[in-house]
């Protein structure tokens, strides 16, 4: 439970951070909240020679409105996401999801950027980013590029981000007043990863589903978007049969890893059940908003 020795750097600006990663090469890692990376280092699963702490980089902080988008500094802690009046009002899904992550102590340190960029399919924000169709701004000393969340995740711990890049900003849409949302997470206990979780965002037009996003957490090597389930519901009234159909379609794309929380069959069924519950709650919220 003791990591090998490593160098610790604490840059005071984004420019400095990017210069440090360039000079340190492949052996360097950015440190956000540390709640995934540090345990991996203690188990000696990850052995970076240099740790570049992003905690003192002001450009990575803050949550602000920019037209119909909200720009989130990736070093915002989960508790800052929960406490953000702007998000509570304009994108209440994110504070709701953050409440399901770990426990208050972890949420004081853990960041939304770390959660998003780590590439762990058990993390909660990635599936939510897929549903929100968020954009990730990636910055390196060479410049900046914007990658949609839906094109970001390749595999477990494997994302579109290059080793010399940092996640500089997360851009999410302002949710319209009629948007129904839900994140349903099944977990053994406080602080544990999801056995399975589902995120649903939907808008209705006179009782008909105009648009729906259904995404899944921890039932595959990446967060999953249940496109077939989305298509099956789009343009239809969402009744019990439609919900069931969507759940079944969502289950078809699951390929969870077996562990002590359950085997593939159980986790797949739980993904289906979370989809049912998330659709129902999102539907209720969409109707309430009318």
């Amino acid at each position: 439970m003791i990591p090998p020795s490593f160098a610790y750097r604490a840059p005071a600006s984004l420019k400095e951070a990017l210069a440090l990663i360039d000079e340190s090469g492949d052996d360097a890692k950015f440190l956000a909240g540390g709640h995934s990376l540090l345990p991996m280092m203690k188990f000696r699963v990850s052995e970076p020679a240099v740790l570049i702490d992003l905690g003192g980089v002001p450009e990575l902080q803050g949550i602000r409105e920019a037209g119909d988008r909200i720009h989130i500094g990736p070093m915002s802690t989960e508790n800052e996401i929960i406490g953000s009046a702007l998000l509570q009002q304009k994108c209440p899904l994110l504070p709701e999801v953050a409440r399901w992550i770990a426990d208050p102590q972890v949420r004081n340190r853990g960041t939304i950027g770390g959660d998003v960029a780590h590439g762990d399919p058990a993390n909660d924000h990635p599936a939510v980013m897929l549903a929100l169709e968020a954009d990730f701004v990636l910055r390196s000393s060479q410049g900046e590029r914007v990658v949609p969340a839906n094109e970001f995740y390749f595999g477990t711990y494997f994302t579109a981000m290059e080793a010399n890049e940092v996640l500089a900003e997360i851009r999410v849409p302002v949710l319209g007043p009629g948007t129904g949302y839900a994140y349903k997470k099944l977990k053994r206990k406080t602080g544990d990863f999801a056995i399975a979780a589902a995120c649903v965002l939907l808008t209705l037009d006179r009782g008909i589903c105009k648009r729906i996003a259904i995404t899944l957490t921890n039932v595959g090597p990446t967060p999953l978007r249940a496109s077939a389930a989305e298509q099956a519901l789009t343009g239809k009234a969402i009744d019990d049969a439609a919900v069931e159909n969507a759940a079944q379609l969502a289950m078809q794309i699951c390929d969870p890893a077996e562990d002590l929380r359950g085997d593939k069959e159980y986790k797949t069924h739980m993904a289906g059940e979370m989809v049912r519950r998330a659709i129902r709650q999102a539907l209720e919220r969409a109707k309430e908003a009318k």
Partner: peptide, 18 residues
């Protein structure tokens, strides 16, 4: 009695019919 094993019992016995 993890939820996974309890569910398996339920599922095997068809007690989760909707």
């Amino acid at each position: 009695y993890k939820s996974s094993t309890v569910w398996k019992t339920i599922h095997t016995l068809n007690l989760d019919q909707r």
